[in-house]
Design a protein around this nucleic acid. Sequence first.
DNA 1: CTGGATCCATGATGATACTG
DNA 2: CAGTATCATCATGGATCCAG
Lengths: 221, 221
Amino acid sequence: MIRNVRTYNHFCAVARTLELVGDRWSLLVIRDLLTGPKRFTDLMERLAGITPKTLTQRLRELTDIGLVTADRAPGRREVQYRLTDAGQELGPVVDALNWWGLQHAWRWPQPGEPLHVEHLLGAVIQAINHTTGDHQPARWHLRFPDDDYLVESDGHRWSLAATDPQVRADVTVTATVEAFTQYLFAPAATPEPDIDIVGNTKAVQRFKRLIRAIADVVGTP
Amino acid sequence: MIRNVRTYNHFCAVARTLELVGDRWSLLVIRDLLTGPKRFTDLMERLAGITPKTLTQRLRELTDIGLVTADRAPGRREVQYRLTDAGQELGPVVDALNWWGLQHAWRWPQPGEPLHVEHLLGAVIQAINHTTGDHQPARWHLRFPDDDYLVESDGHRWSLAATDPQVRADVTVTATVEAFTQYLFAPAATPEPDIDIVGNTKAVQRFKRLIRAIADVVGTP
DNA sequence: CTGGATCCATGATGATACTG
DNA sequence: CAGTATCATCATGGATCCAG
């Protein structure tokens, strides 16, 4: 396959980077792989609106330039797409875009706008990292009907990863996506039956405090 | 004018940001405005390869969404394009792209590849910020035949700005673009007549030390 | 079912030339 | 200096189809 060589030919590292990941959808593919390996269909789901043709093309390009690898389990039809180390190191780029958008381009979901909880959690992480001074270690397990996520702080910064249902954490939250979304925007108004928060008392209090602390960032229209 | 509404419609701050600045050339226009206001022709020069049509379109879009303002001096035909505060705050995004590119996509200039010293200095700044631990305040005045730049550290991070010839600094460097480029890649091999470095002795030594310290980052093929 | 491929439409970008 | 105008091309989207 002939790679589309849409270059800038500037002697500039910004331009060089954008030659590799500046195409439409590329950085969104990377955004979704930053939380862990995913299959073609998982990506199609999160990248609402992309056509399979474009997703195929982007994955090929990212593979060709060494940012993604395609793992095919022998005998299985499934393909797991995974970031290489160089791909993972685009995390700061995606974080910077995320934080700027949260401050300057955030609004409530439009009617019919697809909402994936993984992206909402990405916003939560950025808001905690930038607006609260609290970076003490923590492990929060968030359980949704279709996915499990681990939100954790290593003592310096918070991060998000897809995880398995067996994880041990100091706070475990079980909710539907809708209930969790409403909880983020209006913590006090969400009835208890819709969202279940368990764990060590202090850890739960800290969780609730941090969510309240970012409400005016994440909840602004 | 009908704005190009190429949206993703994801409930995601990364996607929102890319809807605004993810088009081809947009972030490069912002890169060049981050060092100070520029005229249409100044931008054409730095954005080698862009067509005037596309530059006009990008400037209109960025103006419409509030990231750029066009200042027209009354009676004069000149237009100064300038970033708004929201536009300036894209600095961290451009920095992240710059640093990633420096680590993963850097190579010597291709034959015939346009080289603008402003972009080279952008790489220098990133390298100093990330690889040396030295963030003590400093002011370096770099004088080239056509442009003057100020490289300075405020005690926390280094930054680059276009400036005027009258600036007072602790180090003043006068050189052609070619000599300065060669000096960056091979400091010891550049003959003195081609590059003039003056100022306080300690400051000059520090300048030379920092340039040598980043040679293996900026000078890697 | 997953993981694509194919065909066609259209809109964004590029090349070149020209202008108030 | 700061753009327009015109035409060509290429990337992306939409819809549909296909193989393991």
